[in-house]
């Protein structure tokens, strides 16, 4: 149960003279939901970008189930089982919801390259069934054939979550999954994420909304000015005076 899924070891990342991350150490255990909180500009998104290979750290290592991630290409990291929900939903706006969810499944199956132009989409029944199932999970099955671009922002996020879920990732990274959502949408997203949690998927979640953090997270790490200043269970972190000063006190 306590296998290390993600291990960030002394990660350092500078943009010009600005140090975005300095000596960040983070350990995410299997089956847990690990929240990363911190004021704006603390380096939270940079941290995720380093994990998925969008940015290369200047120093330090990222390992995933003991395997080195640093220096690997984004598609290789995705193939290993790391999926990410972005802050602004990355979807295929001109395609139907069904196609949006089927495509990642094809990426996963044929990502390394397999020539399949001789097959027909209409013969991909298993992937279609799976996609419909996922759409049901995220509550979008009724709009299956609508164009993704016409969805509301909240629904786009849900769709993107579905696109990640069909990959059956071993680690799911969520970048502010409820930002810009109404209270009602936020609550339904929390329920959805809890449902996934009960299936034992490991998650790292970046969030501003404390309500979301305290209802989902098993562990919380606090990032401020590129450094982890505190970590532990949500209760421990809430009581930590350093956190109060840097986050709750400093930001508000």
């Amino acid at each position: 149960m306590n296998d290390l899924v993600l291990h960030l070891d002394n990660i350092q990342k500078n943009f010009g003279g600005l140090s975005a991350l300095s000596d960040v150490n983070l350990q995410v255990e299997e089956g847990t939901t690990h929240a990363i909180i911190g004021p704006n500009g603390a380096g939270k998104s940079t941290l995720l970008n380093v994990c998925i290979g969008r940015l290369k750290p200047d120093a330090g290592h990222v390992t995933f189930y003991g395997e080195e991630l640093t220096g690997r290409k984004p598609h290789e990291i995705a193939q290993m089982g790391v999926a990410r929900v972005f802050q602004t939903p990355e979807i295929f706006p001109e395609m139907s919801l069904l196609e949006n969810v089927m495509l990642p499944a094809f990426s996963k199956r044929d990502g390394a390259f397999s020539m399949n132009a001789h097959k027909l989409l209409s013969r991909q029944g298993d992937i279609r069934d799976e996609a419909e199932h996922i759409l049901e999970d995220v509550g979008l099955q009724e709009q299956m054939m609508t164009e993704a671009g016409s969805l509301s922002r909240g629904d786009k996020r849900r769709l993107e979550l579905g696109m990640c879920l069909i990959l059956k990732p071993r680690l799911l990274l969520l970048d502010e999954p409820t930002a810009g959502m109404s209270r009602h949408d936020t609550n339904s997203t929390i329920d959805l994420l809890k449902k996934i949690k009960s299936r034992g998927m490991t998650k790292v979640i970046i969030e501003h909304d404390m309500h979301v953090v305290f209802s989902l997270a098993d562990k919380v790490s606090v990032l401020a000015r590129g450094q982890i200043i505190a970590g532990g269970t949500p209760e421990e972190v809430r009581e930590d005076p350093k956190v109060k000063e840097a986050y709750l006190g400093g930001a508000h």
Binding site: Q79, F92, L103, A112, N116, K119, L121
Partner: peptide, 27 residues
């Protein structure tokens, strides 16, 4: 046939959102 195959759909995916294709594991 290419338009109607997973291959064609993936090419359309590249046109629509190359990032998303990459971060779902497509080379």
């Amino acid at each position: 046939r290419i338009f109607r195959s997973p291959f064609g759909l993936m090419l359309k995916g590249i046109k629509s959102n190359q990032n998303r294709m990459m971060y779902t594991g497509l080379n």
